[in-house]
Structure formats: C-alpha cells, structure tokens
C-alpha cells in the first residue's frame, strides 16, 4: 500500500490511504467541526475511544458534552437520540455491537421510524445509528450477527452498509445530513482495511450503488465484507475465463435498483451474496426485485443467493468460517450460473 516517492509529490489526496475506522472518524470529526448540532452518544466512546477505537481522540477535541459517554442503556441512548433529533439536534449513536439493536428496537422500530408519519408529517428524526456488525472475530453468537434485514423491513428507516473506507466516509456524511433515521452498519473486519480516502469532506448520496468491478459474464451483488470476497472470487474466476461484474448496493434502503437491473440485463446471470443468514435475508429482496423487473427476460440462469447458514454464529474459528459464504462458495455459484448447472 506504500506509495512510491515519485508520486507522493502529486495528487496527495488520492494518494492518501487510511483505514475504514479512520475514515469513519474523519467523517464524524468533519461534520462536528462544521455543525454544532452534531454530537455522538454511546457506551465507552470517551477516553476509551469506543469498543473498536473509532472515536479515539475525539473527546479530546470535542469535549464530553459532544462526545457523550453513556451508561449501558441502549433503549435510553437510542430514545434520547430520537428525542434530541426531533427537537433540532443531529445525534449520532454508537451502538457498541449491532446485536444490541435488539435492546434498542422499540425505539428504532416504533418511535424513530414512525414518528413523522404518525404525526402527519410534523417533525423529523435526523439521527444516525452507527453499529459494528458481522462475524469473523470469534465473538460468538451474541456479538457476530448481521441483522440488517430487520431494520430494512421497517418503513421509515434508511439502511447503509459500506464496504470501503472511502465509501464509509462519503456515506456517513450523507447519513448525518439526511433528515431521516439512518442505520449505518460497519463490518468489524473492515475497520482495519485501508483505502484511498480524499481528505476533504465529500458526500456519496444514499441510494447509489457502486460497480466495484466491471464484467460481462455474471453479476455478483454483494454487501459489506462480501464485496471483498466477491472481488477476490472475480480475480480467480478471470483466470478461468469468467468475467465477473461486482455491484455493491452500499445502501439497502433506499436501494439503487436500476444499477442492479442494468447489470443483470448485460450479464444475464446474477448471484446475490451477503453475510446475514440466507433465510429471510435481504438478498431475497434483491433477488425478487430482479425477478420482478425487466431483467427477468434477460436471465439465462436462476437467480442464486448466498448467505449464512441458519445457525447462531459459533465460537470455534473453523465452524465460524463454515457458517458464512467464502470465496470458494462464490466462485462455485458463479461457475454454476455461467455453465447453467
């Protein structure tokens, strides 16, 4: 990743590489410098810097009033954020692990998502709930889930799942600026991944998918950490002569349907892959959307879905890995689609 001495003198912005966690922190810090109404509340986000170090150093810059260290009270943290958003602030909640959304769920599902509609359009809830999700860290069943389909099911919430550092920064800025409640998933395995991230503030609109790799033979729609697995699979499949297109929706709600449909029309084959449990997962929604769209007539193979097995995430690393789709699984699914097996 180290850039050479030669190109370090030109185009500093694109040459700079930071981690996903740093990109999230940079987006938060830039927004907080820009707008006094933006503040963060969550467990252990003060001097500790958050469970994954995302807010490290922020209390020193912004102070304890705006980096609000909270008790372990997910319902109250989330509800207080909603109440403050309803009255003019722009809170960002850090929920320590996305599994804990269960404890905050009434506030999200019954309050944040519905207040504006129930009140006949009076009041906005411009809040963001950031939360680390996913398996791969050996944290076992209660700290490894991907429950994004739960929130994506609820009208009134928006759902974001970035896969790269630069996307995380631009999408988080958009999420904070959005007048609606946004659930912002940060996959734990992505925090240390690096990428080129412009230093200046920029926005990536919610509802705009990104084609992470262009291809002609098969479309893989992948989210979060699965984007990287799909890209790895695509590299290997290229050696077999299979030309893969990888699409990252980036936001589940709103979903950029057109980019996916256009890709499927081009390739005629599609695999949807996410880390969440396949049964009832959001991949089913994407697959159905494709089947109901004009892309149906272009399909040369059944729409395939890959997702986790219907099992709590186990502790043992081998078992944990076996729970969620791996590069080989994606490659096999692509081959099956291309060769119509």
């Amino acid at each position: 990743m180290q850039s050479s001495a030669v190109n370090s003198s030109n185009d500093k912005e694109t040459a700079r590489s930071i981690t996903f966690a740093e990109a999230v922190r940079e987006a938060l810090s830039q927004e907080m410098r820009e707008d006094q109404d933006v503040f963060i509340l969550g467990e252990d986000i003060g001097v500790y810097g958050g469970a994954f170090g995302v807010t490290r150093g922020m209390i020193e810059e912004f102070g304890p009033e705006r980096i609000r260290n909270t008790p372990i009270s997910e319902a109250a943290i989330t509800g207080a954020a909603i109440g403050s958003a309803l009255t003019g602030m722009k809170p960002v909640v850090e929920l320590q692990f996305s599994d804990f959304i269960t404890i905050a769920m009434d506030q999200l599902a019954n309050q944040a998502a519905k207040l504006r509609y129930m009140y006949g359009g009076k009041g906005n809830v411009p809040m963001v709930l950031r939360t680390p999700s996913g398996s791969g860290t050996g944290a076992a069943a209660q700290h490894s889930q991907s429950l994004e389909a739960w929130v994506a099911h609820i009208p009134g919430l928006k759902v974001v799942q970035p896969s790269t550092a630069s996307d995380a920064k631009g999408l988080l800025k958009a999420a904070i600026a959005d007048p609606n409640p946004v659930i912002f998933y940060e996959h734990k395995l992505l925090y240390k991944t690096e990428g080129h991230v412009p230093e200046e503030a920029y926005t990536i609109p919610l509802g705009q998918a990104d084609i992470k790799r262009e291809g002609t033979d098969v479309t893989i729609v992948a989210t979060a950490v699965m984007v990287h697995k799909a890209l790895e699979a695509a590299e290997k499949l290229a050696e077999e002569g299979i030309n893969v297109e990888v699409i990252d929706p980036r936001t589940l709600v709103p979903l950029d349907e057109q980019t996916i449909v256009d890709s499927v029309k081009k390739t005629g084959k599609v695999i949807v892959v996410h880390e969440a449990v396949k049964r009832g997962g959001y991949g089913g929604e994407i697959a159905s959307m494709i089947a109901e769209s004009e892309a149906f007539d272009y399909l040369d193979a059944p729409v395939r879905r890959l997702g986790a097995l219907p099992v709590p995430v186990p502790y043992n690393p081998t078992l944990e890995k076996a729970t969620v789709p791996q590069v080989d699984d994606i490659m096999q699914a692509a081959r099956d689609s291309v060769h119509r097996r």
């Binding site: 989330t78 509800g79 207080a80 954020a81 909603i82 109440g83 403050s84 309803l86 009255t87 506030q107």
Partner: peptide, 8 residues
C-alpha cells in the same frame, strides 16, 4: 426516552 432527548 424521547422526553429525555428533548431535554438534552
């Protein structure tokens, strides 16, 4: 909790 948020 919403009332607490408004107070915040």
């Amino acid at each position: 909790p919403l009332a607490v948020g408004a107070a915040l």
